[in-house]
Amino acid sequence: MDIRSVDLNLLVVFDTLMRTRSVNRSAEAIGLSQSATSGALARLRKTFDDALFVRTAATMEPTPRAQQLAPVVRRVVQTIQSEILLPPQFDPAQARRSFTILTPDIGEVAFLPGVLRRLQDEAPGVHLHAVSRPRAAAADALEKGEADLAVGYFPDLQKAGYFQQALFTSSYECITSADHEWAGRRVTLKQYLAARHVLVRPDGREHLLDSWLESRGWHRQVTLELSHFMSLIALLPGTNLVATVPQDIATAVGRHIPLQQIALPFKPPQLQVQQFWHRRMHNDAPNRWLRSLFYEVNRRDSGARLGY
């Protein structure tokens, strides 16, 4: 028998007939007309080359072939109903699985603490793996399933095939050590550009501020380039270095060392922080739960600062 010739709806009719022993009651249970149910029984008989159900004085009794098929058909119908047709469910409290989050080190500092506290209470068996990739590699990682979610500033993902959800809007701040010579002074653009800047490029990523300054023909004197924002904790104290960083980094670094914030001599560009996922994961129940959690924990109103 060629499986392509078998209508799975016929198995539902067979299973119902086994339980009701009646064409009329089967038709009512399935929601078909009596003639449609009789027609389905005729197709079943042809498919299996057996009468399957024989009319007696009161009921339709199964043949030996039908009795042989009955438990197998029951399992198939139950599997379709419970594992194929049932909407996918995800119970975070019982889950034992890992999610990979694509985010730069700023995201590890800003986004993960609150999420981890929620996981401890709501999903203790869920494990997070935070990874950083160059922006050009982010789309490939999501498309191939190497990452479940990207959180941060990813302009390369604002294209077809990817969903996005805004978390908050941020900007840049200029920070120095607490005893920097600029303390209490207003800085001109000429002074700002001539200062000894420390520039952070995680994974070689070019930040929006870099291209924004260059588009205006402004070039900073860069003394040091780093791969990790949190290295500023060790490098700023006791130096005349200047760092212009996203607001969340300024907040996080300021919790570890004394800083002063310097008013920038220009209005910096805005950063739209979002979470992204590939379209093939859009209806995946675990992924829906994950991005809902990140949104609830990390969404901020306009002007709100990072808080743990």
Rank of each mutant, 00 (worst) to 15 (best):
A160I: 09
I80D: 05
C174Q: 12
Y153H: 07
R25A: 12
H197Y: 00
G303N: 13
R133G: 00
A250H: 05
C174K: 04
A160P: 04
G217W: 10
D105T: 00
V109T: 10
H282A: 15
P155D: 13
L236F: 12
G254H: 06
R55N: 10
S5N: 12
A183V: 02
I3G: 08
M281D: 15
R133M: 02
K267G: 12
A123V: 02
H228Y: 07
R135I: 00
G152S: 12
N298S: 06
L232H: 09
T47D: 01
P71E: 13
V187D: 05
R21W: 09
V242F: 07
P62F: 02
A93G: 07
V245L: 10
Q165Y: 12
P71S: 14
R279C: 09
L271R: 00
Q260T: 11
P202A: 05
M281Q: 15
S35C: 01
D148S: 15
A285M: 06
S211G: 08
Q191P: 01
N9V: 02
P71I: 13
G114L: 11
E146Y: 14
V115P: 01
Y295H: 11
H129G: 06
D210Q: 08
F99C: 07
T79I: 08
D15S: 10
P92S: 11
L85R: 15
V77R: 08
V222T: 15
A66I: 01
A110R: 01
R220Q: 14
